[in-house]
Amino acid sequence: MAILNDENLAKVDKLVPKYPEKRSATLPLLHLIQEEHGYISNEAVEWVAERLDLSPINVYEVVTFYPMFKQKPGGKYAVKVCRTLSCALGGAYKTCKAFEEALGCGLDQTSEDKLASLEFVECHANCGRAPVVMVDEQMFEGVDENGARKLVEKMREGTL
């Protein structure tokens, strides 16, 4: 499996020289891989290391630090419920329960039908619209239990 498609490879070639030091391109490269494959394999880690003249451990240390980088494939959708105080005050924990029930899976798990992976995340800087939920790159505001169920329905229908 290619680590990146041609379009993304071209992006890499443009991106790396922009930084005063190559190593800085670690995060952007990992983002490209995560976006293309949904996760970052060890081969990808080695590829990034090679591309930036690093040791694989240098990249591995970074991948494992950041929750946005996954080391295994997840569901079709990534559901991220903000659990931090303002959202919790607005009912985020109930929202999360509703997701768990609707998807039939627990936190940090992927639903059996591989529709979605569910996780708690920390404050997404939209606390005035609590509870906040992100599905992939899209943000949803004021997601109560009902809202959670509707989102799952839409995912099932493929209309999200």
Binding site: E21, R23, S24, A25, T26, L27, P28, L30, H31, L52, L54, N58, E61, V62, F65, Y66, P67, M68, F69, V121, E122
Partner: peptide, 23 residues
């Protein structure tokens, strides 16, 4: 330069390390 989900990257020297491609 995009972070990847870490509050500590808001601390300015943590941010700098992150920008340098390190933990």
């Amino acid at each position: 330069h995009r972070g990847a989900g870490a509050y500590i990257c808001g601390e300015e020297t943590g941010l700098i390390e992150s920008l340098e491609g390190k933990r």
